[in-house]
């Protein structure tokens, strides 16, 4: 699997983060982050809680502001200019830990809202696209229900479909499975694996190490706001270099 994944990666740069720093008040959350993501790469970011991994990916689509350094997505430099932010957000899809579906809209409306109002897609076409992606995440029959009527796993798959409807070139996942019951994790991971196999550029914050081994072509370990170690999954899991990585892996893998 790792080999086939490797082959799909191109030399084109999707995200380039240079010397990025962020503070919450005086608290230094992200320290000198340097990261380049190539088109088609699938990166898993892990680390103890509070290590800044969620903040990192939230900076990429400007949900959080960074104070120093630069972020470049698909050649667009992220600045405080709304046009840039709009452009980056419409290229970057994101899935949240708590799904954040809009409870007052049906599944279908959740999926068509942004295409209609942001991409200006005609409603009919947007609905077709939405149905296409809902089929892809295997819940087309729930299209007219409301989020509250679905299980957690179904909701997260809808959230993925909702992002995909914007035809993003990059997907960010912020702990997509950690609010789910164990039996629902698999259905969400399967959806994500399928997405990976199609060559989507993905950044996942997750503790699903099985997923990382199977899908990622790079694993990044973060602690105290810094990238401590990164490597290909085999090397990362079998032969971690930094003592902090070793400690973390021993805790999370339970041996």
């Amino acid at each position: 699997m790792a080999e086939t994944a490797q082959m799909q990666v191109s030399d084109e740069v999707a995200i380039r983060i240079n010397n990025m720093n962020k503070w919450y008040g005086a608290f230094h959350v992200l320290r000198d982050i340097d990261l380049t993501v190539h088109r088609g790469e699938r990166i898993v970011i892990c680390g103890p809680s509070g290590s800044g991994k969620s903040t990192l990916i939230r900076c990429i689509n400007a949900l959080e502001e960074h104070q120093k350094g630069s972020i470049e997505v698909d050649g667009t430099l992220l600045s405080s200019d709304l046009k840039n932010i709009d452009k980056i957000r419409s290229e970057v899809g994101m899935c949240f830990q708590h799904f954040n579906l809009f409870p007052h809209l049906t599944i279908l409306e959740n999926c068509t809202l942004a295409p209609i109002w942001v991409r200006k897609t005609p409603k009919k076409e947007a609905e077709e696209t939405a149905m296409h992606f809902l089929e892809k995440v295997k819940i087309p029959d729930q299209a007219n229900k409301y989020p509250g009527q679905l299980s957690g796993g179904q909701q997260q798959r809808v959230a993925i479909a909702r992002s995909l409807c914007m035809r993003p070139r990059i997907m960010l996942f912020d702990e997509p499975t950690s609010a789910l019951d164990p039996e629902m994790i698999k259905e969400v991971l399967d959806t994500m694996i399928e997405l990976a196999e199609e060559g989507m550029t993905m950044l996942c914050v997750t503790h699903e190490m099985g997923f990382a081994r199977q899908v990622a072509n790079r694993v990044i370990f973060m602690d105290e706001g810094q990238i401590v170690e990164q490597n290909e999954p085999e090397a990362f899991f079998n032969n971690p270099q930094s003592p902090r990585t070793q400690l973390f892996l021993s805790q999370i893998l339970g041996h």
Binding site: R31, E224, Q226, I227, E229, N231, E232, A235, Q241
Partner: peptide, 8 residues
């Protein structure tokens, strides 16, 4: 592959 040698 990248390993941080010293903490920032």
């Amino acid at each position: 592959a990248f390993v941080r040698e010293s903490s920032l």
